[in-house]
Simulated scan of single mutants.
Amino acid sequence: MTEGTTRRLRLSAVLAILLGGAIGIIGSTQTWLTATLNDGSELAVPVPGADALAVLAPLSLAALALGLALTIVGRVLRYVFAVIAIGLGAGLGWGSVRIAAEQPIDSVAGPVTEATGLSGEAGISGIVDQITATPWPGVTVAASVLILLGGVLVLATAHRWTTGGRKYRTGRVAGTGPRDSIDSWDDLSRGEDPTS
């Protein structure tokens, strides 16, 4: 595998995780479900993604942070972050698929309670006539797949990635390459004699 191919795979993995996280954040503010009430008013209560799936925003933010961190971490943390990305994608996907397929009553509980004052699953299910899903749960499933695939790609290619920039390295192997004044200061900071 050439260095150019490795760079493209690295960029693809990081962008997939970032894009999935960004879509998840956007989705948390959009209407996922509409609950129609049968209390005589036929009121339609919109349910945003953050209310329908409470972990949506936190998992999406974690994916964004993880994607950014992947650009600077070392090899061991790449593997750790890849596994975390796979877990984030799987968790986000499972929750989104559940809401898209089932439209469960617990996913509309918060907004319906705010609109009617009723609480408890029995009270809410008694007043909710119908729950309709928008495309956003499906869009978030696609975002979770991006995060998951990005994690798998990192796991498969992390050993070929080049290390981060010089400012992220912690030390230098003695006797390798030319030394400059910054290296001498670094040696002094570690308590080593740069003249030896």
Rank of each mutant, 00 (worst) to 15 (best):
M1E: 14
M1V: 10
G4V: 02
G4E: 13
T5M: 06
R8W: 11
S12V: 01
L15Y: 04
A16M: 15
I17W: 09
I17L: 08
I17A: 00
L18D: 00
G24I: 12
I25L: 15
I26D: 03
G27L: 12
G27E: 03
T29G: 09
Q30M: 15
W32C: 06
W32Q: 04
L33M: 07
L33H: 06
T34D: 13
A35D: 09
A35F: 12
T36R: 08
L43E: 15
V45Y: 05
L56Q: 10
P58C: 06
L59N: 03
L59A: 08
L59W: 02
L61T: 07
A63V: 08
L64D: 09
L66G: 03
L66F: 08
G67H: 04
L68W: 08
A69T: 13
I72Q: 12
G74H: 11
G74M: 02
L77Q: 09
I86G: 01
L88S: 07
L88P: 02
G89H: 03
W94L: 14
S96T: 11
R98V: 14
I99A: 04
I99D: 02
I99Y: 08
I99S: 07
A101N: 14
Q103A: 12
P104N: 06
I105F: 13
D106H: 11
D106Y: 10
D106Q: 14
V108G: 01
G110V: 12
E114L: 13
E114Y: 07
A115W: 07
G117S: 06
G117Y: 08
G117W: 10
L118Q: 15
S119C: 05
S119I: 01
G120E: 08
E121V: 05
A122K: 13
G123N: 11
I124C: 04
G126P: 10
Q130I: 08
T132A: 14
A133W: 13
W136H: 04
P137V: 05
V139N: 01
V141N: 09
V141A: 01
I147R: 02
I147D: 00
V152L: 15
L155T: 02
L155A: 14
A156Q: 13
A158P: 01
H159K: 08
H159Y: 03
H159T: 05
R166N: 05
Y168P: 00
R169A: 09
R169S: 04
A174K: 09
A174I: 05
A174P: 06
G175T: 11
R179S: 06
D180L: 03
D183M: 07
W185N: 07
S189P: 00
R190T: 10
G191L: 02
D193K: 02
P194Q: 01
P194N: 00
P194M: 01
S196E: 15
